[in-house]
């Protein structure tokens, strides 16, 4: 049974430390806007965007989350049913990179996807507009997907690619939400990853319409926390 005509909703969760630019990336991608005065996200929110992937119209639901670890354990209800998880750090802040691992683990624990090994992640290093590297950055998607990182980039780029490879070849992008660098490209890959994940989930299900419901009715572990 083909699922071509079904309306697909792809759920994408964006995680990372406070202030790395999660909200900015999302707004740049969806609304083509950047503001220096986004308030710190409290709780969670999402934006939706329709995208065409190889003639298929899909709706991406991008979940923006609070970057403070302190608040994470409360709001994990929306992790469930995710099709892709984006890990964001600030290329100028090494601490925000160091925490990526724990964000990833936290996600896997809370979302508990069917197959954690193959669950798609994408890593984004944001704020490449800052500092002296400003003008050097423009790495093609293909190079990134192959894990080839131009060594002119900041040190963290190398570390990031190492990290990504160690996690099973996670796609990696360096972006500037402020100057709209690489943002489209990153999200296109995110969308493809998410769609692939969604379709993989559909294999085990002959009734496409119930796919979303299955996800929604995922056992409530938190139990009215």
């Amino acid at each position: 049974m083909t699922t071509r005509n079904k309306k697909v909703l792809l759920k994408v969760i964006i995680l990372g430390d406070s202030g790395v630019g999660k909200t900015s990336l999302m707004n740049q991608y969806v609304n083509k806007k950047f503001s220096a005065s986004y308030k710190a996200t409290i709780g969670a929110d999402f934006l939706t965007k329709e995208v065409l992937i190889d003639d298929r119209l899909v709706t991406m639901q991008l979940w923006d989350t609070a970057g403070q670890e302190r608040f994470q354990s409360l709001g994990v209800a929306f992790y469930r049913g995710a099709d892709c998880c984006v890990l964001v750090y600030d290329v100028n802040n090494s601490k925000s990179f160091d925490t990526l691992d724990s964000w990833r683990d936290e996600f896997l624990v809370q979302a508990s996807p069917m197959d954690p090994e193959s669950f798609p992640f994408v890593v984004i290093g944001n704020k490449i507009d800052m500092g002296e590297e400003k003008r050097v950055v423009c790495v093609s998607v293909i190079m990134l997907l192959k894990g080839v990182i131009a060594d002119r980039l900041k040190i963290s780029a190398k570390r990031a690619s190492t990290f990504c490879q160690s996690k099973g070849g996670i796609p990696y992008f360096e972006t500037s939400a402020k100057e709209a660098l690489n943002v489209e490209d990153a999200f296109e890959v995110i969308a493809r990853q998410a769609l692939a994940q969604e379709e993989a989930g559909d294999f085990s299900n002959d009734f496409p319409d119930t796919t979303i419901d299955v996800n929604r009715d995922y056992p409530d572990q938190g139990c009215s926390c």
């Binding site: 409290i42 709780g43 969670a44 608040f71 409360l74 709001g75 209800a77 409530d220 938190g222 926390c225």
Partner: peptide, 15 residues
């Protein structure tokens, strides 16, 4: 609606 965690009130209650 799977919303009885009342998480949607988190922001309002926190600040």
């Amino acid at each position: 609606a799977d919303s009885n965690n009342f998480f949607f009130f988190f922001r309002m209650l926190l600040v």
